[in-house]
Design a protein around this nucleic acid. Structure first.
Lengths: 119, 119
DNA sequence: CTCCGTTATGTTCGCACGGGTATAATGACC
DNA sequence: GGTCATTATACCCGTGCGAACATAACGGAG
């Protein structure tokens, strides 16, 4: 599923794509950068790099982090982060819906694949 | 322009994105793999690799090549190639149109960029 | 039979990217 | 003051990708 991947390039050259969006969602759901990274099978280092990039591409950060304390630190989405994620998901949904016909045709004319790999 | 990039993943794991689509269009317009590659600022080798990938992802090739002869060789799109390109462009157009609102909102909330870079 | 621009293929090299690892630093709680 | 999971940062290293370069094959034109 989700055969169609979208990458939106911002004026400054940075971009928002499936990877950052998924990470954003993972942080929202797990409350932790490292947990979200683990869940996606990526190193903490890479996840943190993406967080840094995300926070730099908007005037104010999308992710708020805290260290130590009762919960041993963690990360949450700011209001801006939640909005950005929602907008990306909405964009994705509308794009897939609008292009369903073309997507179907392209998939239909693609090289036939063995049924054993169907899920 | 064309801030939104689409990548469609086919069942066999290969994918059709902006790079291959542009190359496809370049070949259609120039009638040559090397000319299309030069126009896009990529090495012939890379362009040819993409052509190979394109021809392998569908049951029959999208690009037909010829060597030597009066025109010193060249490449043209097959009917399938033209159709695939048209479908991708249509998909792109519909996706952008459908998500124009979300794209606009995301761009609007992005970090402000200096007007000197506007074109 | 040479010339020409293209397709087709191999080889080498530089470099960016991500993984792995290590190490601070944080701060509420016991 | 020690514990704990997390954030934050630095360093090394393998690997893959693409550029650059080199070379062959092609086949009609002249």
């Amino acid at each position: 599923m989700d055969k169609l991947k979208l990458r939106l390039t911002l004026p400054d050259g940075s971009w928002l794509g499936p990877g950052k969006a998924d990470l954003l969602q993972g942080i929202a759901e797990t409350g932790s950068i490292s947990a979200a990274g683990r869940r996606m099978g990526m190193s903490y280092k890479r996840a943190w790099g993406l967080v840094e990039a995300l926070n730099r591409m908007f005037p104010s950060p999308l992710i708020e982090t805290s260290r130590g304390g009762a919960g041993h630190g963690g990360a949450t989405l700011t209001a801006l982060g939640q909005k950005a994620l929602a907008l990306y998901r909405a964009l994705q949904g509308k794009a897939v819906a609008a292009g369903a016909d073309e997507i179907g045709q392209l998939l239909a004319m693609a090289r036939q694949f063995d049924m054993s790999e169907r899920k």
